[in-house]
Design a binder for these strands. Structure first.
Lengths: 245, 245
DNA sequence: GCCTAGGTCCCGTTT
DNA sequence: AAACGGGGCCTAGGC
């Protein structure tokens, strides 16, 4: 496809907010939070109706370059080449310039519709909701007092007591690392200062990295394995119970 | 496009590791680190030669679903519909199932080539390299001893002295938040214990969030503004100086 | 292989 | 608007 034709088609299609996929050989420059340059190579450029622009190379998950909505994106002819220029209209201000060398494929589609919202489960939130209803899985004697208990350094996921000892529980839906342990420690230390008594701290996660585990134990805190897959089993069991009644 | 034709074309093109873009109405399920379901909507699905699969809805930067390479991805005909099934072959094990309702557009391209590597600058790394050469911008009397100085709790970006006082410098290329302050505090506290003397701690970043700044000051640490855009100016100045000689 | 830290992280929620 | 924290974060580098 000729550069002038491409410039015109892109201008029209972007103006009409069509979903457009341009596969081409191109070079790209970016200025903004960082800066980047990449020389000529084959890439797939996705222009969305909401003005998002995403550039993918043939390898990897991450786009090689992108511009997040809202942007002003336009196409022009410069020295016989199509140049796509995209500017973000709000903070952070940034801009991207794509110089198209050779068009490989061009597709533009009007009126794509997606009204659906994705339903993601087995997250930390689900874990919290589940343990709110099944506090015994934290500890047989755990009595839950507050969920998302707000204290100065942040929010304690589960706050309660075992016997007359206060308990702080930190939840992670994926393997816990150093930040999770430090977070729990901060809450524990703050409460210990505040209440002037020992606090029981528990980290619940499907797993924990080695060094963080060492620190956790050294600090007298506890790790309790909890796998999010358990949620599915419990849910199924629940459904089964309902079905049997 | 007929479901059987699509299944066959997809099987062939995926087998030949062609870059393929399928725009269609589809529903998607995901099982793995979390789980997700999304009902029928128009989406753009990108199949890369390295077996990456990325599904974009017409809105936003983030893919609605995806599978990272390496995956086994195949297309089959089930109950008259094309079903794309993708499984990750290494940890973390996860899978995605796309049920195609209606094909809007199908494009398959062999032999896309991109040998270029992106050159990203104005990152934390660049900041460190620059300050290594211009330690006075940390403090007029700063004498740099070590870059990326390794201690037990991690790596100190810049380590040196002002007078007879040891100095720990933490760098951030973007606005600093709580984690940056805690990181610096950890290094400072560890060194203070180790050396049994007061340590000067400096956080350099283009900005700092309010609460983290409060904590920083309360802990007797220092914030020094440093904007990555400065790197460009210095580089240009350097170029100008070279050009003048 | 695991672990750590950076990132143009994005994104939603709350203040 | 800024701030804060989760995320299927991803990715590169180190060990």
């Amino acid at each position: 496809m000729d550069a002038q034709i491409l410039s015109e088609r892109l201008s029209t299609d972007l103006g009409e907010r069509k979903t457009t996929v341009l596969t081409c050989s191109c070079s790209i420059e970016y200025w903004g939070r960082s800066r980047s340059v990449i020389g000529c190579g084959d890439r797939i450029i996705l222009f969305k109706p909401d003005s998002t622009v995403i550039v993918h190379s043939p390898r990897g998950f991450k786009p090689v370059n992108w511009m997040s909505s809202p942007t002003d994106t336009s196409a022009d002819l410069e020295d016989g080449r199509t140049v796509v220029f995209s500017q973000r209209t709000v903070k952070p201000y940034e801009e991207m310039k794509i110089t198209v060398d050779k068009v490989i494929e061009y597709t533009s589609l009007p009126g794509l519709r997606d009204e659906e919202k994705i339903d993601v489960t087995h997250t930390e939130r689900d874990m919290r909701d589940y343990l709110e209803k099944h506090p015994r899985e934290v500890h047989p004697d755990f009595r839950l007092k507050t969920v998302e208990h707000h204290i100065t350094p942040g929010f304690i996921d589960l706050y309660g007591k075992i016997g007359d000892r206060y308990v702080v529980v930190e939840l992670k839906a994926v393997k816990a690392g150093l930040p999770a342990v430090l977070q729990l420690k901060r809450y524990r230390d703050w409460l210990r200062e505040k209440l002037r008594q020992p606090i029981h701290a528990i980290l619940m996660a499907p797993g924990i990295a080695k060094n963080p585990h060492t620190l956790l134990k050294k600090e007298g805190m506890e790790f309790k394995k909890f796998n999010v897959h358990k949620l599915e089993i419990k849910k199924e069991k629940n459904t089964l119970e309902k079905w049997m009644n």
